[in-house]
Lab assay of single mutants.
Amino acid sequence: RMRTAFTSTQLLELEREFSSNMYLSRLRRIEIATYLNLSEKQVKIWFQNRRVKHKK
């Protein structure tokens, strides 16, 4: 599987969303994925990984 290289714009938006809410509803995940031109799965995994990073 290929590793996703997020653009700086995508990362900025993902981080902004994360700062306001660490957990996404499915609807919000779809909205963000569509807006950032990513798959729902990519957004889901990014949030999972970001939560782990946040815990450390």
Rank of each mutant, 00 (worst) to 15 (best):
residue 50 R to C: 07
residue 29 R to Y: 04
residue 50 R to G: 01
residue 21 N to Y: 05
residue 20 S to G: 09
residue 5 A to P: 10
residue 41 K to G: 14
residue 25 S to V: 07
residue 13 E to L: 06
residue 20 S to P: 01
residue 9 T to C: 12
residue 42 Q to N: 07
residue 13 E to C: 06
residue 43 V to Q: 00
residue 17 E to D: 00
residue 28 R to G: 01
residue 10 Q to I: 03
residue 15 E to I: 02
residue 15 E to M: 00
residue 44 K to Q: 14
residue 43 V to E: 01
residue 34 T to Q: 06
residue 52 V to S: 14
residue 37 N to M: 07
residue 6 F to Y: 11
residue 45 I to A: 13
residue 45 I to S: 13
residue 48 Q to I: 10
residue 14 L to K: 00
residue 29 R to T: 08
residue 49 N to C: 08
residue 55 K to D: 12
residue 14 L to D: 02
residue 5 A to G: 13
residue 41 K to M: 14
residue 27 L to T: 08
residue 32 I to S: 02
residue 44 K to A: 15
residue 14 L to I: 00
residue 45 I to Q: 14
residue 3 R to V: 15
residue 18 F to S: 01
residue 33 A to F: 01
residue 51 R to A: 14
residue 1 R to E: 15
residue 20 S to C: 08
residue 25 S to K: 04
residue 53 K to C: 11
residue 13 E to W: 06
residue 34 T to K: 08
residue 53 K to T: 11
residue 25 S to I: 00
residue 51 R to N: 09
residue 16 R to C: 06
residue 10 Q to E: 08
residue 25 S to L: 04
residue 5 A to Q: 10
residue 16 R to E: 12
residue 21 N to V: 03
residue 47 F to K: 00
residue 54 H to Y: 11
residue 8 S to P: 11
residue 42 Q to W: 01
residue 38 L to N: 01
residue 26 R to E: 15
residue 2 M to T: 13
residue 41 K to S: 15
residue 46 W to I: 02
residue 23 Y to G: 05
residue 18 F to W: 13
residue 26 R to S: 15
residue 28 R to I: 01
residue 33 A to C: 04
residue 4 T to H: 11
residue 33 A to S: 12
residue 51 R to F: 14
residue 37 N to H: 14
residue 31 E to H: 05
residue 25 S to Q: 00
residue 24 L to E: 06
residue 30 I to S: 07
residue 30 I to A: 09
residue 3 R to E: 15
residue 39 S to Q: 09
residue 3 R to W: 13
residue 50 R to A: 13
residue 4 T to P: 12
residue 18 F to Q: 01
residue 50 R to W: 01
residue 51 R to H: 10
residue 4 T to Q: 12
residue 15 E to C: 03
residue 44 K to E: 14
residue 7 T to F: 01
residue 49 N to P: 02
residue 2 M to W: 10
residue 9 T to W: 13
residue 24 L to Y: 03
residue 35 Y to F: 13
residue 18 F to K: 01
residue 28 R to A: 01
residue 36 L to A: 02
residue 20 S to A: 13
residue 5 A to T: 14
residue 22 M to G: 08
residue 10 Q to S: 01
residue 16 R to W: 05
residue 16 R to A: 12
residue 32 I to G: 01
residue 15 E to G: 00
residue 35 Y to R: 08
residue 30 I to D: 04
residue 51 R to I: 14
residue 7 T to I: 03
residue 31 E to T: 02
residue 15 E to T: 02
residue 35 Y to E: 07
residue 17 E to W: 01
residue 34 T to V: 06
residue 28 R to H: 00
residue 39 S to R: 05
residue 37 N to I: 03
residue 43 V to I: 08
residue 20 S to H: 10
residue 46 W to H: 06
residue 38 L to Q: 02
residue 55 K to C: 11
residue 27 L to S: 08
residue 50 R to T: 04
residue 19 S to E: 14
residue 10 Q to D: 05
residue 52 V to F: 10
residue 35 Y to N: 07
residue 49 N to G: 10
residue 41 K to F: 15
residue 50 R to D: 04
residue 47 F to N: 04
residue 19 S to T: 13
residue 43 V to G: 01
residue 47 F to R: 04
residue 47 F to Y: 02
residue 53 K to G: 12
residue 36 L to H: 04
residue 36 L to R: 03
residue 6 F to Q: 01
residue 10 Q to C: 04
residue 8 S to T: 13
residue 25 S to M: 00
residue 5 A to R: 06
residue 40 E to K: 05
residue 11 L to I: 10
residue 28 R to T: 05
residue 55 K to W: 09
residue 8 S to E: 14
residue 41 K to L: 15
residue 17 E to A: 07
residue 30 I to T: 07
residue 35 Y to V: 10
residue 45 I to N: 13
residue 16 R to G: 07
residue 17 E to T: 02
residue 40 E to Q: 04
residue 44 K to P: 02
residue 51 R to C: 09
residue 53 K to S: 13
residue 42 Q to D: 14
residue 54 H to E: 14
residue 8 S to F: 06
residue 7 T to P: 03
residue 29 R to S: 07
residue 41 K to I: 14
residue 48 Q to G: 06
residue 46 W to V: 01
residue 44 K to W: 15
residue 21 N to S: 07
residue 5 A to I: 10
residue 14 L to H: 03
residue 7 T to Y: 05
residue 10 Q to H: 02
residue 20 S to W: 11
residue 34 T to I: 06
residue 28 R to K: 06
residue 13 E to D: 08
residue 33 A to M: 05
residue 46 W to R: 02
residue 4 T to S: 13
residue 14 L to C: 00
residue 3 R to T: 15
residue 11 L to Y: 02
residue 11 L to N: 06
residue 34 T to P: 01
residue 7 T to A: 05
residue 49 N to S: 12
residue 4 T to C: 14
residue 47 F to D: 01
residue 53 K to L: 11
residue 30 I to Q: 06
residue 5 A to S: 14
residue 15 E to K: 02
residue 9 T to D: 14
residue 25 S to E: 03
residue 35 Y to Q: 10
residue 5 A to V: 11
residue 14 L to P: 01
residue 5 A to E: 14
residue 10 Q to Y: 03
residue 10 Q to T: 07
residue 2 M to Q: 11
residue 35 Y to D: 07
residue 11 L to H: 08
residue 36 L to K: 05
residue 34 T to M: 07
residue 17 E to K: 03
residue 46 W to A: 02
residue 11 L to T: 09
residue 52 V to A: 14
residue 29 R to F: 01
residue 17 E to H: 01
residue 22 M to T: 10
residue 7 T to W: 02
residue 44 K to D: 14
residue 35 Y to G: 07
residue 53 K to W: 12
residue 34 T to A: 07
residue 10 Q to R: 01
residue 23 Y to I: 12
residue 55 K to I: 09
residue 11 L to A: 12
residue 16 R to V: 07
residue 12 L to F: 11
residue 17 E to G: 03
residue 33 A to W: 03
residue 23 Y to L: 09
residue 50 R to P: 03
residue 33 A to P: 00
residue 4 T to N: 14
residue 7 T to H: 04
residue 17 E to P: 04
residue 22 M to V: 08
residue 1 R to C: 11
residue 34 T to S: 07
residue 31 E to A: 05
residue 49 N to Q: 13
residue 9 T to F: 08
residue 26 R to P: 15
residue 55 K to N: 12
residue 30 I to W: 03
residue 45 I to C: 11
residue 40 E to R: 02
residue 16 R to F: 04
residue 39 S to L: 04
residue 34 T to C: 09
residue 43 V to D: 02
residue 16 R to M: 08
residue 2 M to D: 14
residue 47 F to H: 02
residue 20 S to E: 14
residue 5 A to F: 12
residue 26 R to T: 15
residue 22 M to I: 07
residue 34 T to D: 06
residue 11 L to D: 11
residue 39 S to V: 04
residue 53 K to A: 14
residue 45 I to E: 15
residue 30 I to E: 05
residue 27 L to G: 07
residue 55 K to V: 11
residue 3 R to P: 13
residue 49 N to L: 11
residue 25 S to Y: 00
residue 33 A to Y: 00
residue 5 A to K: 08
residue 15 E to S: 02
residue 6 F to G: 03
residue 50 R to L: 04
residue 42 Q to S: 11
residue 15 E to P: 02
residue 8 S to A: 11
residue 31 E to V: 03
residue 51 R to L: 15
residue 12 L to E: 15
residue 36 L to V: 03
residue 13 E to S: 06
residue 43 V to F: 03
residue 46 W to Q: 00
residue 42 Q to I: 09
residue 27 L to H: 09
residue 39 S to N: 08
residue 25 S to A: 05
residue 40 E to P: 05
residue 21 N to E: 05
residue 41 K to V: 15
residue 20 S to M: 09
residue 3 R to I: 14
residue 52 V to H: 11
residue 55 K to L: 11
residue 22 M to L: 07
residue 27 L to M: 13
residue 2 M to C: 06
residue 11 L to V: 10
residue 46 W to N: 04
residue 27 L to W: 08
residue 28 R to N: 01
residue 10 Q to A: 06
residue 54 H to N: 06
residue 38 L to Y: 00
residue 26 R to K: 08
residue 7 T to V: 00
residue 52 V to T: 10
residue 41 K to H: 15
residue 53 K to E: 15
residue 46 W to D: 00
residue 44 K to N: 14
residue 22 M to R: 07
residue 16 R to Q: 11
residue 33 A to I: 03
residue 13 E to H: 08
residue 25 S to R: 05
residue 15 E to F: 01
residue 35 Y to I: 09
residue 8 S to C: 11
residue 18 F to G: 01
residue 55 K to G: 11
residue 14 L to V: 02
residue 31 E to C: 01
residue 26 R to G: 15
residue 41 K to Y: 15
residue 17 E to C: 05
residue 26 R to M: 15
residue 23 Y to W: 06
residue 33 A to N: 00
residue 5 A to N: 12
residue 29 R to P: 04
residue 26 R to C: 15
residue 29 R to V: 07
residue 40 E to N: 00
residue 5 A to W: 09
residue 31 E to N: 03
residue 18 F to I: 03
residue 25 S to P: 08
residue 54 H to P: 08
